[in-house]
Design a protein around this nucleic acid. Structure first.
Lengths: 226, 226
DNA sequence: TTCTTTTTGTTGGATTTCCAACATATTTTT
DNA sequence: AAAAATATGTTGGAAATCCAACAAAAAGAA
């Protein structure tokens, strides 16, 4: 456990929390850890989930099973990332299943203990609430951006919308994207080969330059960010 | 102002707050109201926004302007609904523009005052934080559901995913949807006429029954909820 | 009611995407 | 360095979507 303390301080949820406060805080949040073998189920769809999870070590994957029973990968949760925080806040039954993609150690926190100020009225509690709000707000923005990309009509527009956003984030017309081709295709919800075709076409039309994961929007592109 | 007090108590953000506490709370949150004429801009894209807004009366619309400068409607905000709460929590510059669709009265609240416990350590503050977390979590879930629908490959799958979710929410295989055909087409990001075709086809195939906005999933449909 | 306006359904052709199959390039392993 | 594995680019036909135009139905106004 103590070895885990130092790691967990890097989690955005505990940003600004000092190392000596952490043990109190974790007991306050009813924290418990568990280790899951590769392929085992961490959270089953349909359950009412009162805790959020933080991946300490390993990797878990979030699946959504549709009405036909076939599952699609929604997200991959890496160390220090949260999952199920939204569902545990709403009290609805989880529409997702979480599985360990490899042997993983998970830290579970009672979500309601985060926003319920405890008797001890600890100072770090306010910071924790701020952090959780911040994380949820960021996820919200990220989801909105994905929707904005996906709702474009053509693959070309989806791609340009995505690249414009990335340029904006990086404050530069030249930047690396965090996906490989298949990953980007999944994110934009288009066919991989169709995506490759469109990247080539945009390059041929002089709107972008692209080498591997590095893109550059041309100056004559509708908006540039130099 | 006092006439507005009673109305605002119905806003989910103030759920559980008593009428006599409200004035203190509003001053705590640096509340101010403003009236916007039809067509005027409430919030301009690019600004760093420190407040969230609540529509008291009227209607506002949220637009997202893409890299070509053409805007698409993201959401319509009706009385007692919040907007810009996610952006004001993150501190990023707003990627959206909010306009008054009709003459509207807006209540602005300093978001940071919500999660920063004030000196007075007021009891209702905890409730407010809980409410804000709940609202953001619900939005998060709603966005995830929209993404799940949109990421289906075919119009038929998009539609069935949406209808299954609605059936789940209503705990029944028969339910009303909150969109007309054009609205549903926009939500799923498909062509309206293609949507109509698919609804007819699903009905012909016996998977659903549909009359106006009322749908019924058939018993032989992959999942039913009776 | 009748007329007008709005919403929804239907059709066919143009356009776009998907998909499988394969070529080429890049990375990793031996 | 060679071989294997993985990632990316390219092609053409099949399938799905878009789109405009119009028909039918429903809702609202006169």
């Amino acid at each position: 456990m103590p070895t885990m303390f130092k790691k967990v301080l890097n989690c955005p949820l505990f940003k600004g929390i000092s190392e000596q406060d952490l043990p109190f805080l974790l007991s306050c949040l009813n924290a418990r850890t568990a280790v899951f073998d590769k392929g085992s189920v961490v959270l089953n769809a349909g359950e009412i989930w009162k805790t959020c999870g933080i991946v300490i070590e390993g990797k878990t994957q979030v699946f959504q099973y549709d009405f036909l029973g076939s599952g699609s990968l929604i997200a991959t949760i890496k160390p220090m990332q949260l999952f199920a925080e939204a569902f545990s806040c709403t009290g609805i039954s989880a529409p997702i299943t979480v599985e360990a993609a490899e042997k993983s150690e998970i830290l579970f926190l009672n979500t309601s203990r985060i926003h319920t100020t405890c008797d001890r009225n600890c100072a770090f509690h306010a910071r924790l609430i701020y952090n959780l709000l911040h994380i949820m707000a960021l996820k919200n923005v990220a989801l909105l951006q994905k929707i904005e990309c996906m709702s474009q009509k053509t693959t070309r527009e989806k791609l340009m919308t995505f690249l414009s956003m990335e340029a904006m984030k990086n404050q530069s017309s030249e930047f690396d994207i965090p996906y490989d081709r298949q990953g980007l295709a999944d994110y934009l919800s288009v066919n991989r080969s169709a995506l490759s075709v469109e990247i080539s076409r945009l390059a041929k039309d002089g709107l972008i330059k692209c080498r591997k994961n590095r893109f550059k929007l041309s100056e004559n592109s509708p908006r540039s960010f130099d």
